[in-house]
Amino acid sequence: MSNKPYYSSITKKIIMSLMGLFLLTFLLVHLTLNSFLLFDKELFNEGAHFMGTNPFIQVFQWVLFAGFAIHIIYGIILQIQNWMSRPTGYKKRAFMEQSPFSKYMIYTGLLIFIFLAIHLTNFFFVKMGWVGNGIPEVGGKEDMGQLVIDLFHNGGYVTLYVVLILLMGFHLDHAFQSAFQTLGLNHKTYWGFIKGLSRVYAIVVTLGFVIIPLILHFK
């Protein structure tokens, strides 16, 4: 080994998985906040306001962005290395992956990235005043909820949103248990539980993110 800094495949994977677990936690928070919209727009707006003004969250959002960036950059580096490790492919290759969506992580990942870009354009960038006409205001307060509801009345947008969320679900189904495996947290007595939990997480989060726009659309 030379003296230049060397990140082994396992080190890179561990970074990927830690960032991934961090993002998984974030998604749960995000979903909880979104679900407020179904019950009470004001509650949602308060939540959004809190997220938009709390100094800790303000700092933390940049950590979150960094997490995304690291996860994506490492994901791409690992994938390029993986492609390079098999210069000639097979003529006929069966589907052998036991974690079926693992095969498409780079593709679902890139689509999630596109989704993230659209998502940020629609909400975060608007809020920051970088695009659009800013957040609608009601009685001097920002009505973030209304912005969301308005967008979800656009059928095309909802379709795109739902499709991309489903793809994210496939990503998550593999991601959750994969992170545990990478961190070495695989033991025969609770491995089945982790895999089950992974699937439950993927389904609950996906359904949650899918149901909210649908309800709002048809409401």
Binding site: S9, I10, K12, K13, I14, L78, Q81, N82, M84, S85, R86, M96, E97, Q98, S99, S102, K103, M105, H174, Q177, S178, Q181, T182, L183, G184, L185, N186, H187, K188, W191
Partner: peptide, 28 residues
């Protein structure tokens, strides 16, 4: 120049001696 593991577990499914992927976790 071997690739990076992405936990697809295809190796375990195809191993003629049925070596378990729990070994990979143990190595991690």
């Amino acid at each position: 120049g071997f690739g990076n593991c992405t936990n697809t577990y295809a190796c375990e499914a195809e191993c003629p001696k049925e070596i378990s992927i729990t070994n990979i976790a143990r190595m991690n």
